[in-house]
Nucleic acid binder design. Structure first.
Length: 723
DNA sequence: GTGGGGATGCTTTTT
DNA sequence: GCATCCCCAC
């Protein structure tokens, strides 16, 4: 094959197919190109069958793109190569080898919410009060421990304070509960394979002989279990290439450990090292400004990234008053770029530190009619009604999954509350049977007849589908189950306007299962469930739509855009307050900022606000981010900005309430009643259908002219009464 | 015992 | 601005 498209170092990195290879690849230096060409080279010149290659990427989307590029280069339309995220590769491996671990091959995968639900049950059993340790805090600390590979017993030994002891206790109980539910959490997906390799070395050897060549992308963001997975897999043949950049390590809070790169050399002393230092993405101004910031970090490998493109324009800097004016500034710069440079909407991305910042931007984009896509926020598969349907399916696949059982036993409402379930749990431990089996003979329980009947018919329903789960296709099973469980009926009969939307979401889920069946007719339902639970936000994003992309800086990793806006550059927001406490976390924030800036090809705009509202009301008097100060002045162009929306300022004062009073004609909050016609700045005219709450908390349900229904808080909604 | 409605409190980032 | 929790009415 031809390596003409590659530069010298890239070529050498591709051609090094014998022994371990470590590639330091700076931002925009073509690491994806090296990885894809290397795969092609391995297949064409290195005498590897595609089946013998394992490639690990950071997101499913990156995996799919890489596979597509390799197929294109090979001019083929099938490629039996193992390519995916650590989590999906491990999940597949575990399903195939479950028997070696006494694990059910139909184990459930618990997401964050499932974990919290499980910990709530444990809290209750162990009488842990949430004032001492919230379920959420317990979850994240347990996850941290698992990422550090600290087992419950070790944590118990280590514990000094009462809190640490409690945590160890909850941790131990949590692990036991997971087993009982035949469920694995995200961390387990990485830990179980290691246990498997210890217990059954012959299984490890089997995979070592399958995956003779291993490639790893974004190596700087691997954690300890991932490091072990990779090194164990590669230790036999030592044919492995890893690509990473220590300056782009932004997942330390998730256990990612930059020392994995340094340890790579220790583990494979014979490894060849290549350093890609030519940046093909950004202009010199952008690259030098970003590099100037990241050199403030002490802990980093020295490097000299050089821009291959020309000098380019200065970094634009906006000072704005608040988050509304911030979005005005972005829109005005965006419109200018479109007019003067003939850009399209999909040339732009707006990056921010926290998901919560998207709302203000989103509102203004919608008001101004600018098409946008948001990555993240509430995921489709995280919506309650969607999760409820998925929980039915998960329960049918795994009757021991009590978290799913609890989720759906009273959905749609069957009159089964917490107390009734408590009694079921008690009975189960008394009879030493599974919780689900208790439901079969519910009349034995000290509960009313109506409830035991409901429990028994619920049992019959699930049992029926459990028995036929392998005879039906995924979509047939789901459609029938959703119908028979009365979920569609429940939403159709409801008067709540939001239930119509929920019904739509359930239908959308059914459609996506249909699509899955069409694409992979022979795959069982469990494959669909697995795919869904391992999806990430960025996996849904596609750049072919002509829309502006809004997302967190974290999500932007690996992407590139002609123009990047970084919003919310207030000190305390980016870098975030909590990160200021330790040097390590501040350095990680700085790397995150570096990642954000280096996404840009031609132009970067930085925006901060002096008076940002956070958490519902409080104002923060903002200083610009310290990272802006770390950019040498000669790279910056301060742009004077006049907000197009002038009604906000009255008499030059910058009082927050002025904005409210000027546009508001209703003086007290309680002026509304059912039937009133109102005007909303975005949704237009509408009629009040429901009222609830009083004073500041008054809410209204409004049906707008175009048919959309919204529940709004009067205090925030800026409604005007019209006649 | 259940479920609706109101008060409370919270926000990092994600496989 | 939202979800979660808690309390009270059926």
């Amino acid at each position: 094959m031809s390596l003409k498209e590659l530069n010298k170092v890239q070529c050498r990195a591709v051609e090094a197919v014998e022994g371990p290879v470590l590639i330091f690849a700076g931002a925009g230096s073509g690491k994806t190109r090296v990885l894809t060409h290397k795969m092609v080279y391995l297949i064409q010149e290195g005498h590897y069958h595609p089946e013998n290659i394992l490639a690990v990427t950071f997101t499913n989307k990156a995996a799919a793109e890489m596979k597509e590029r390799v197929m294109k280069l090979l001019k083929t339309d099938t490629l039996p190569i193992a390519i995916g995220t650590f989590h999906s590769i491990c999940a597949r491996l575990l399903r195939n080898e479950a028997k070696h671990l006494n694990l059910s091959p139909s184990f459930a995968i618990y997401d964050v919410q499932d974990q919290i639900d499980l910990i709530k049950v444990i809290h209750k059993k162990l009488e842990v009060h949430k004032d001492i340790l919230t379920p959420n805090a317990a979850r994240s600390q347990i996850s941290y421990l698992k990422n550090k590979m600290i087992m419950p017993s070790a944590q118990l030994k280590k514990a000094r304070t009462r809190l640490e002891n409690k945590l160890a206790e909850v941790y131990a109980a949590y692990e036991i509960s997971l087993r009982e539910n035949e469920a694995l959490d995200f961390d387990d997906l990485l830990l179980y394979p290691l246990e498997l390799f210890d217990k059954a070395p012959e299984v490890l050897e089997k995979y070592q002989n399958i995956w003779k060549y291993i490639l790893v992308d974004e190596y700087q963001d691997t954690n300890r279990p991932q490091y072990f997975f990779i090194t164990r897999m590669a230790e036999k043949y030592e044919n492995i290439s890893v690509v990473g950049d220590d300056d782009q390590s932004i997942y330390g809070w998730r256990g990612a450990d930059v020392t994995n790169i340094l340890d790579f050399e220790k583990f494979f002393p014979s490894c060849q090292i290549f350093t890609l230092e030519k940046n093909y993405r950004s202009t010199e101004q952008i690259l030098d400004a970003a590099s100037a910031v990241v050199t403030h970090n002490d802990k980093r490998a020295k490097k000299n990234l050089v821009a291959a493109n020309g000098s380019g324009e200065l970094i634009g800097l906006f000072e704005t008053r608040d988050e509304l004016e911030e979005s005005d500034a972005i829109i005005s710069a965006l419109e200018k770029e479109i007019k003067l440079k003939k850009r399209t909407f999909n040339n732009f991305a707006v990056l921010y530190r926290t998901n919560a910042q998207s709302r203000a931007l989103e509102d203004n984009f919608r008001r101004m009619g600018i098409p946008y896509n948001i990555v993240g926020g509430i995921r489709f598969y995280d919506r309650k009604e969607v999760k409820d349907v998925l929980a039915y399916l998960r329960l049918v696949m795994n009757l021991k999954d009590t978290i799913s059982l609890r989720r759906v036993v009273n959905f749609p409402p069957r009159g089964i509350g917490a107390k009734t379930m408590d009694k079921c749990v008690e009975q189960a431990s008394l009879d030493k049977v599974e919780l689900f089996d208790v439901l079969e003979n519910a009349e034995k329980l000290p509960i009313r007849g109506k409830q035991s009947e409901a429990l028994e018919s619920f049992f019959e329903l699930i049992k029926k589908y459990y028995d036929i789960r392998e005879k039906l296709s995924a979509c047939e099973l789901t459609r029938a189950l959703v119908e028979e469980a009365g979920i569609l009926h429940h939403f159709k009969e409801s008067n709540d306007p939001e239930d119509a939307e929920r019904l739509d979401n359930v239908n959308e889920l059914l459609n996506s299962i249909d699509e899955f069946c069409l694409k992979m007719p022979d795959s069982p339902l469990s494959d669909f469930l697995e795919e869904v639970s391992l999806l990430s936000d960025i996996d849904h994003w596609n750049d072919s739509d002509n829309r502006v992309t809004l997302m967190t800086a974290h999500s932007s990793k690996g992407l590139e855009f002609p123009v990047i806006f970084i919003a919310g550059l207030d000190d305390g927001l980016f870098p975030l307050y909590n990160a200021l406490e330790s040097k390590e976390s501040l350095e990680e924030e700085r790397r995150l900022f570096y990642v954000a800036m280096t996404r840009a090809e031609e132009r970067v705009y930085l925006i901060y606000a002096t008076n940002r509202r956070r958490m519902g009301g409080e104002n923060l008097l903002g200083m610009p981010s310290r990272f802006i100060g770390e950019i040498p002045d000669e790279f910056l162009e301060r742009i004077e900005f006049q907000s197009a929306v002038t009604h906000r300022v009255v008499g030059g004062s910058r009082v927050k309430q002025t904005r409210v009073e000027v546009t508001r004609t209703v003086t007290s909050f309680d002026d509304f009643k059912v039937g009133d016609m109102v005007e909303h700045s975005i949704f237009g005219a509408g009629k009040i259908m429901v009222l609830s709450g009083t004073g500041e908390n008054q809410r209204v349900g409004v049906v707008f002219k175009d048919g959309t229904k919204k529940k709004l808080i009067v205090k925030y909604a800026n409604l005007t009464k019209i006649t």
